[in-house]
Design a protein around this nucleic acid. Structure first.
Lengths: 254, 254
DNA sequence: TCCTTTCTACGTACACCGTACACAGTACGC
DNA sequence: GCGTACTGTGTACGGTGTACGTAGAAAGGA
């Protein structure tokens, strides 16, 4: 399950909300809510029960207000997602790694993002076709670029390297979330699910037709208890990623 | 936008459908449709207008049947997605790269998957928490493992390497699809979108606060016409991926 | 031949979703 | 005190997947 963002809709309004610049008119009834209240509650809801549990009705009910009231504070759900994203970005810790070895710098950026996605798994499944142009996104982008700056990469490479690295973290988090969702919905863990499918699969699948698949599949399945193991995939992927970047930087030294 | 798969539901039934083993009872009225007809039409629809355009009602209408009729052939939409996935997997070309250099073998696997995702962009956004245990998936997995087999990797590494590599292709395809969706929905390309946001952003953003972001962002934006360029990201990512795998294999030689 | 059984097709209905729109009521500026 | 701008909300619309019940068709058995 994934969700769209503010692509449509008025960019000016979205930008104004992201940067909290209000028209500051002191007319009319005092607002009973605030933008932050709406956004923060939405984040809590998504953290607790996933993006699919974040509906306007449920959010309104949690806050204690009628569904349509939310639209006084937020143009629509797409913009709400933009605001949620920028809010969690803004709150990320940003450790200073100036002067450290590049591998440690990269690892830090990657780990910061892994922590973000561990705390807010829904972030991995909201579209990032265009980033929310808010203060959180800006601070995050700037900080992460600084961490990778001065390593001999060109600006264009810097941008590409960061994007590639963030994509890795996002994808891993998405896969982990998918695996957990599958486990929850089927009420079976990977092992049980396999045992459930094995007998019928054996009757229908000619094992000799796919020898490599059978060999490697069982080897991987036995190594970690399931077909896909989040920690192992992380270690492996990070290793490949770092080695790949090392090659890129080595090429620059010459 | 992404969609769930058959996690819930009866595994036996799903497996039977995937392998096309029917109870073959010759009673009752002749079926007016076939499973293949339903699945193929669904694929065509998703190819043409995206996953979000694939609704049971629209699919039924396209076939020329009442919505509920589909449920005679398929337990639900989740299982339909399983069947669609396995079908496009089954039809992938599988070029034999035995004896070639490993870089060419890996590149071939990667390109085959890129072609799949180019023809069927929706594939990138259906969950793959648990793969559909059908003939297509089996053949694909076996073929791709064989392409990477015999390069000195252990079976567990082989599985991890393949997963990592497929994740890269999927992620790239997803990002590309997101970018296109953003362009379509906002009716602005990246450049127009930036120009639209720039004036207001300039008023609210202290450029001196994020010097690195501004510097690198503009450099990247000028290099390729937009914030994110699909081809450039592909080239860069593939390079890093191959170099990373090279390091892994080099480590094995010693 | 006719009846029973089994299967296909599908109309209706339900519980959701995001949100457009109209309207009631409140509090400030003049 | 009045106009005006604003908040809060009830109702309703068009969309989603699909549970349930039923009508009717075809085949097997009597």
């Amino acid at each position: 399950m994934s969700s769209d963002r503010s692509s449509a809709g008025d960019p000016d309004r979205t930008l104004a909300l992201l940067w909290r610049v209000s028209g500051e008119s002191r007319r009319g009834p005092r607002p009973g809510l605030s933008l932050d209240r709406v956004v923060d509650t939405a984040i809590e809801l998504a953290d607790a029960d996933g993006l699919s549990a974040l509906t306007m009705r449920r959010l309104a009910q949690t806050i204690g207000v009628a569904p349509m009231t939310l639209y006084t504070y937020v143009p629509g759900k797409a913009e709400l997602l933009d605001l949620m994203l920028d809010a969690v970005y803004a709150r990320m810790p940003r450790t200073d790694t100036a002067g450290r070895h590049w591998r440690e710098r990269v690892t830090t950026v990657v780990e910061e993002n892994r922590a973000l996605l561990a705390a807010h798994p829904w972030v991995a499944s909201v579209s990032t076709g265009r980033p929310p142009l808010g203060p959180g996104q800006m601070a995050k982008y700037d900080h992460e670029l600084r961490a990778l700056d001065g390593l001999g990469l060109s600006d264009v490479e810097l941008d590409a390297a960061l994007a590639h690295l963030l994509a890795f973290v996002r994808t891993h988090a998405r896969d982990a979330a998918d695996a957990m969702a599958a486990e929850r919905e089927s009420r079976m863990n990977d092992e049980q699910w396999w045992e459930r499918n094995a007998p019928l699969l054996a009757r229908v699948l000619d094992e000799t037709a796919f020898p490599t698949a059978v060999r490697v599949g069982t080897a991987a399945g036995q190594a970690h208890g399931s077909a896909w193991n989040a920690d192992h995939a992380w270690q492996f992927g990070l290793q490949v990623l770092l080695d790949g970047l090392a090659a890129l930087m080595g090429r620059h030294e010459r």
